[in-house]
Design a protein around this nucleic acid. Structure first.
Length: 319
DNA sequence: ACTAGCCCCTGGGAGC
DNA sequence: TGCTCCCAGGGGCTAG
């Protein structure tokens, strides 16, 4: 699922490609999940308005804030895309087909419109995980930006660029963990806003720190040897410092590996990232702990409706 | 103000 | 082989 490193990789790659390109058309089969400002776009009428705001504009730049991709347009509007769990953005030459040939496991009786890559079957864009395309932006150069999202949780919205930080999506988001200016004291102040909160939950709280989700929080806590349910206020300051440093390290590592493709995430050229091959805790339930000299095993528990993976042997519970 | 829990969604994997 | 059931979970929302 796209967290900071995945969204960062996507936004950075797109920022090398999209600026200067003019949006020629927008297509979607996904009206219920398009938004215009605060207004949820529930029908075609709103989609037409979204389309009107977008078509004809040029892309100025693409950036990331928390787990959102922001596409700034030349007309004072910004498209916000939150990929949630299974969404990912792809860029390439795409064709709209009706009664299309089968792609992956799409049923034979499929008779809807479908976008398929106009590329050789060797192209990573043909990866079966890339076939759930629910919105496309076609550019005047003949290429398209498409959102593939099997579970349809992704959010696409449009805002006035100068007001975008006034809306809830971005208003209350905490600081960016990889900013040079984000120092330990800021981190400490942030997490201590939830003194009774469990450390894993607090790390994942977007209002405390932006961009960390389930995978990276598991990996950070494994690395520093802190049990995920430890309340923040019980963790000694020097251990919080270790968490802070591990957070920067693990997130950077995620970026270096091109993100995590445990699930559906792909880079805009359709390729997998490789952080999933370096997990120590996330989805390693039952495996031997890989920390040197540790003889524990990775367990899984549910906290706050999410799974947490950790080694009960070397991850210390502060309480 | 807080938190626990439901909801959205659907492919894939496990079990029979 | 094919059916059913359960799981993945970010973030919005509601009930307590």
């Amino acid at each position: 699922m796209p967290e900071l490193p995945e969204v960062h990789t996507t936004a950075q790659n797109l920022n090398k490609i999209l600026p200067g390109l003019k949006i020629k058309d927008v297509w979607s089969d996904y009206f219920s999940d398009l938004y215009e400002g605060k207004q949820q776009v529930k029908n075609k009428k709103y989609f037409q308005r979204f389309k009107k705001d977008v078509v004809g504009a040029k892309v100025k730049r693409v950036l990331r804030r928390a787990k959102n991709v922001l596409i700034e347009l030349s007309n004072g509007k910004t498209i916000l895309i939150h990929m949630k769990m299974t969404g990912h953005l792809l860029y390439g030459r795409y064709l709209l087909r009706k009664n299309s040939p089968k792609v992956g496991k799409i049923p034979e009786n499929w008779n809807k419109e479908i976008w398929i890559p106009d590329e050789s079957k060797e192209s990573p864009l043909w990866d079966p995980y890339n076939r759930f395309i629910h919105i496309t932006f076609s550019f005047s150069n003949g290429e398209s930006l498409v959102l593939s999202d099997v579970r349809k949780f992704a959010k696409v919205a449009i805002f006035d660029s100068d007001k975008i930080f006034e809306f809830n999506d971005l208003k209350k988001i905490g600081p960016e963990p990889l900013e040079e200016s984000f120092k330990f004291l800021n981190f400490k102040r942030q997490v201590l806003k939830k003194p009774n909160g469990k450390i894993k939950q607090v790390l994942m709280d977007q209002e405390i720190i932006a961009g960390i989700g389930n995978i990276y929080s598991d990996e950070i806590l494994w690395l520093v040897g802190v049990h995920p349910v430890s309340p923040v206020s019980k963790i000694p300051s020097e251990v919080l410092k270790k968490i802070f440093l591990a957070m920067k390290k693990v997130l950077k590592k995620g970026i270096d590996f091109g993100g995590d493709s445990t699930s559906d995430y792909r880079t805009p050229d359709g390729k997998r990232g490789s952080f999933q091959y370096h997990h120590r805790a996330y989805q390693k339930t039952g495996s031997d702990c890989s920390k040197p000299k540790c003889e524990g095993k990775i367990s899984k528990i549910k906290i706050f409706g999410r799974s947490a993976h950790f080694c009960a042997t070397h991850q210390k519970l502060f309480s």
